[in-house]
C-alpha cells in the first residue's frame, strides 16, 4: 500500500528543522568550540553572548550551563504590535528582511532568532521556535505567560486567514500566502491542497472548453500559453 504519511513534513520534522536555527545564549560555563558536521561552534566564554544552534542551546539550558537570550520579536510589546497588524489587515505580516550579504538566503542560515533579529517581524519558524523556547526556557523569557497568550491569539488569527483564503480561490485569482510559517504550512497543506485539487477537478470540463474557445479565437498567439497550463496540471 501507499505510504501512510501525508505529503509534506509532519510537525516533528518541521520542529527538527527548526532546531538548526541559531539562537543567542549567555553561557554560564566555559566550553571549547565543538567540531560538528555543520562546522565548528564558537567557544563559550561566560558573560559573552554567543550564537548557537537551537538544539545545542536547549541541551545546555537543560543542563543549566547556559541561559537563552530570547529573540527580540518574542516579547509582549512586539508580539502585540504584530497581532495588531495581523488583525487589521487581510494579509499576513511581513517576514524579516533578508540581510544585505549574498550567501545566507534560507531560514536555518538566517539570523532570525538571535539577539540582533528584527523585532517587528515573525520569522519562518516562529511557531516552533517559540513553543520550544517557552517550554524549555520559560524563565529566560520576560512575562512568559503573556507571550504565550499572544502567541495563541496570533496562531488563531493566522489560521483563520488561511481558512478564509480558501473561499476566494478561483481560477485566475490567487491567495497571497507570503509570510506563512513552516508549521502553518504543515498544518494547512492537506486541507488547502485538497480544496485546490477538488476545484481543479470540478473546473476541468470548463477549463477545456475555455481553452478550446481561446484556441479558436487566438490561434497561434495563445497556443504557447495553453501548453504551459497543460504542463502545470501534472
Amino acid at each position: 500500500m501507499a505510504l501512510t504519511l501525508p505529503p509534506g513534513l509532519t510537525p516533528p520534522e518541521v520542529a527538527f528543522l527548526c532546531e538548526m536555527e541559531l539562537v543567542t545564549v549567555i553561557p554560564r560555563q566555559r566550553l571549547e568550540g565543538l567540531q560538528l558536521l555543520g562546522g565548528p561552534t564558537v567557544p563559550l566564554i561566560p558573560p559573552h553572548r554567543t550564537p548557537l544552534p537551537l538544539w545545542l542551546a536547549l541541551l545546555l539550558k537543560r543542563q543549566n550551563r547556559a541561559n537563552i537570550f530570547p529573540p527580540p520579536w518574542l516579547s509582549p510589546s512586539s508580539l502585540d504590535a504584530i497581532l495588531q497588524l495581523e488583525t487589521s489587515s487581510p494579509e499576513f505580516s511581513d517576514t524579516p528582511p533578508l540581510p544585505r550579504s549574498t550567501t545566507p538566503v534560507s531560514p536555518p542560515f538566517l539570523p532570525s532568532a538571535t539577539a540582533d533579529a528584527p523585532p517587528d517581524a515573525l520569522p519562518y519558524h516562529w511557531l516552533e521556535l517559540s513553543t520550544l523556547l517557552l517550554e524549555a526556557a520559560s524563565d529566560d523569557i520576560p512575562s512568559a505567560d503573556h507571550v504565550r497568550r499572544l502567541l495563541r491569539d496570533l496562531r488563531e488569527v493566522r489560521m483563520a486567514k488561511l481558512r478564509a483564503g480558501v473561499e476566494v480561490l478561483e481560477g485566475g485569482r490567487e491567495v497571497k500566502m507570503n509570510g506563512v510559517g513552516a508549521m502553518e504550512v504543515s498544518e494547512g497543506r492537506a486541507f488547502i491542497g485538497g480544496v485546490v485539487d477538488g476545484l481543479r477537478k470540478l473546473g476541468a470540463g470548463r477549463e477545456i472548453s475555455r481553452r478550446e474557445r481561446e484556441g479558436e479565437e487566438g490561434g497561434l498567439g495563445t497556443g504557447g500559453e495553453g501548453d504551459n497550463e497543460d504542463d502545470m496540471e501534472y
Binding site: R163, A164, V166, E167, L169, E170, F191, V195, G198, L199, L202, G203
Partner: peptide, 10 residues
C-alpha cells in the same frame, strides 16, 4: 458547484 464547494470547505 465550485462556489458551493468553496463555501462548504471553509
Amino acid at each position: 458547484l465550485c462556489e458551493a464547494f468553496k463555501k462548504r470547505a471553509a
